[in-house]
Amino acid sequence: KKIKIKIKVYNPETKEVLELEIEVSEEEAEELAKKLAEELEKKGYKIEEVEI
């Protein structure tokens, strides 16, 4: 079964909002969402919402 992940991120420095969407297997979904959120935060983005 495929799971659709939508991530909306906001960069306070540039006032930019990015929306990302990807489909992955159920097993990958939670781990991938967690890794993406961590990487984006390292780059200065503030995570507003992660929906699985």
Rank of each mutant, 00 (worst) to 15 (best):
L32F: 10
K42F: 06
T14Y: 05
V17M: 09
E38A: 12
E19C: 13
V9H: 03
E38I: 10
K6F: 14
I7P: 00
E51W: 13
T14K: 07
S25N: 13
A37S: 11
N11E: 03
E51C: 14
E13Y: 15
E39G: 03
I52W: 07
P12M: 15
K1L: 15
K8A: 03
E28M: 12
L36I: 07
Y45H: 02
T14I: 04
V24L: 03
E13P: 06
I3H: 10
T14C: 07
G44I: 00
K4Q: 06
I3R: 14
I47P: 02
E39N: 03
V24D: 06
A29N: 02
K8P: 00
I22C: 13
E31D: 04
E23H: 13
E31I: 08
L32G: 07
K34A: 10
K35H: 09
K1A: 06
E19H: 11
K46T: 08
L18V: 03
K42T: 03
I22L: 10
K6E: 02
E38Q: 13
L18A: 05
E16K: 12
E48H: 08
V50G: 01
E26C: 11
E27Q: 10
P12L: 15
A37D: 01
V9S: 13
E41D: 03
K15Q: 06
E28R: 11
K34Q: 09
E49M: 11
E26A: 09
E51H: 08
I22G: 03
E27L: 05
V50F: 05
E48R: 11
K8R: 15
L40F: 07
K8W: 12
E26F: 07
L40S: 00
E41M: 11
E39H: 05
L18W: 09
Y45E: 01
L18C: 12
E16R: 09
S25T: 05
I52S: 02
V24Y: 04
K46V: 09
L36P: 00
E28P: 06
K4Y: 15
I47S: 00
I47N: 00
E31L: 12
L40Y: 09
G44W: 01
K8M: 04
A29P: 08
E41T: 06
Y10A: 03
E28I: 12
E51L: 10
A29S: 09
V9Y: 14
G44P: 00
Y45A: 02
E16W: 15
K15M: 04
E41Y: 08
A33W: 14
K46L: 14
K6V: 04
L32E: 08
K8L: 02
S25Q: 10
E38S: 09
K42C: 14
V50I: 07
A33L: 07
E13W: 15
K15D: 10
E16L: 10
E39K: 03
L20Y: 13
I3D: 02
Y45Q: 01
E26I: 09
E51K: 08
E13S: 14
V24Q: 02
S25C: 13
L32Y: 07
K2N: 06
I47R: 01
A37K: 10
V24N: 03
I3Q: 07
L32Q: 11
E30G: 12
E48M: 15
I22P: 01
K6N: 05
G44M: 02
E23W: 11
K15T: 06
E48D: 03
L18S: 05
E28F: 08
E49V: 10
L32R: 09
V17E: 08
E39Q: 09
K4T: 11
E13G: 06
E26S: 10
I5E: 00
L20S: 02
G44R: 01
P12Q: 14
E21L: 15
I7R: 00
K42Y: 07
K4P: 01
E30I: 07
A37L: 11
K15N: 11
K35W: 14
K1H: 10
E28S: 08
Y45M: 04
K6R: 15
E27R: 08
T14Q: 05
V50R: 00
I5N: 00
K2P: 08
E26N: 06
E39V: 07
L36V: 06
K1F: 15
K6W: 12
E27A: 13
K6Y: 15
K8F: 06
K42E: 03
E16T: 11
L40P: 00
E28Q: 10
L40H: 01
I7K: 00
E26M: 11
E21V: 13
E21G: 11
I5P: 00
E16M: 12
I22A: 12
K1Q: 04
S25K: 07
E38L: 12
L32S: 05
E49Q: 11
E27G: 13
E41I: 10
T14V: 06
K15I: 09
I47V: 07
K2F: 14
L18P: 00
E19N: 13
E51I: 14
V9G: 14
I22R: 11
L32I: 13
E26Y: 10
K42R: 14
E23Q: 08
V9Q: 00
E30R: 11
L18Q: 03
K8H: 03
T14W: 06
K4D: 02
K34S: 04
E16P: 01
K1Y: 15
K2G: 06
E38V: 12
A29L: 03
Y10V: 07
K1P: 08
K42V: 03
K15G: 12
E30N: 12
K42G: 07
E38H: 10
E48A: 05
I5K: 00
I7E: 00
E27P: 13
I7Q: 00
P12Y: 15
E28H: 14
E49H: 11
I7D: 00
L36R: 01
I7Y: 15
E38F: 13
E48K: 10
K1I: 04
A33Y: 11
K35C: 11
E31P: 10
K43N: 03
S25Y: 14
P12I: 15
E49T: 14
K8D: 00
E48Y: 10
K42D: 03
I47E: 00
E41N: 04
E13H: 13
I47L: 03
S25W: 10
N11L: 03
S25M: 09
L32T: 11
A29F: 03
L20H: 07
E16D: 07
I22Y: 09
E16I: 14
K34E: 03
A33D: 01
V50E: 01
Y10H: 04
K8I: 08
E51N: 13
K1W: 15
E48S: 06
L40Q: 01
I7F: 15
I22V: 12
E27K: 04
A37C: 09
E13T: 11
I47D: 01
A37H: 04
E16G: 07
E30Y: 14
N11R: 09
K2Y: 15
L36T: 03
L20K: 02
K6L: 05
A29G: 05
E16Q: 12
E48N: 09
I5G: 00
E28V: 07
E27S: 14
P12T: 13
K34G: 04
K43W: 11
E19P: 03
K43S: 04
I7M: 08
K2E: 06
E28D: 13
I47K: 00
K43C: 13
V50L: 11
S25D: 12
E27C: 14
E26T: 04
E31G: 15
E21Q: 10
A37M: 11
L36D: 00
I7C: 03
E21K: 14
E30Q: 09
E31H: 08
I52H: 03
K34M: 10
I7V: 05
E21T: 10
I5A: 02
K2Q: 10
